[in-house]
Design a protein around this nucleic acid. Sequence first.
DNA 1: ACCTCGACCTGGGCGC
DNA 2: TGCGCCCAGGTCGAGG
Length: 299
Amino acid sequence: MGHTFLLMPELPEVETVRRSLARHVEGRTVTEVEVGDPYVLRGQAVEVFREGLTGQTLRSTCRHGKLLFFPLEDKTLIVHLGMTGQLTIRLPHRHDTPFAVHKKTGLQRTLQHAPDKHTHISLYLDNGAALHYRDIRKFGRFFHLPIVTEDKVISHFNLGVDPLTEAFTTDYLKRGLAHRKVALKAALLDQKFIAGLGNIYVDEALFQAGLRPGRGAYRLTLPKCELLREAIVQVLEKGIEAGGTTLRDFVSGEGQAGYNQEGLLVYGRYGKPCPRCGSVLKRGVYGGRTTSWCSRCQQ
DNA sequence: ACCTCGACCTGGGCGC
DNA sequence: TGCGCCCAGGTCGAGG
């Protein structure tokens, strides 16, 4: 008790989880399914979920935007981590380590922990490992759908392009922004347009591109769209390389903390000096989310 | 079709 | 130690 694990799952965090789980789950067969709190299933029948997954083999691990999914034999297991969802593997030969201190950040992390009252779903695998889903706020959700292609998963959830694919071109960005009267930041948070950006990486990308979050999305010129596209790709790739952003106790599927938080330039830093020009970072709300930006560096 | 805003949850942090 | 309030990485649906 007393320790919490908060995940900030935007694209880089979800990709970090996917990569760290891959070697533990790919090719494994589900032997048993436990559902603690069916809320996470959002109305799907518990028995249908359990029986649908038991005996199925996890063929691979996939991600599109913030959506994580696992193709099975004749269906797909799909996970959205919401705000505080964690998907971690618990290996039989390892000791649980509720607390450890991250070398660089000093943040607490866990390498592996036993299920607790926030663990809502557990999949037991044929190698003795268990895949636990833990989610304090329960904004996350699990699905299993009788579809097998990645395209169909993406269209089922109405997701836009993943910004780390070739479909994310300057043209796509320009055309998608052209008709939107909302703030640029709000447009970038729309998962039907670009799948994977969230509050942290949007603020970081806008700062890097030198663009004001509150300006009308439709006003972006093609050259600015190119700058923005590059900035988005760069901040996301950097986030993945850093193993995600750990503000509190984010852990990968293997219990590793990320360290991208050390490189955040504006997110959550309103009221503090701009790392580039020193003027005080502004605070505002766009797309319903708290936003930080530099009014001198971002025009 | 587009947009805004509250609802959905639990817990941390802060002021008193 | 406790209470009340505000805040938090994300959607989703009702209503304008």
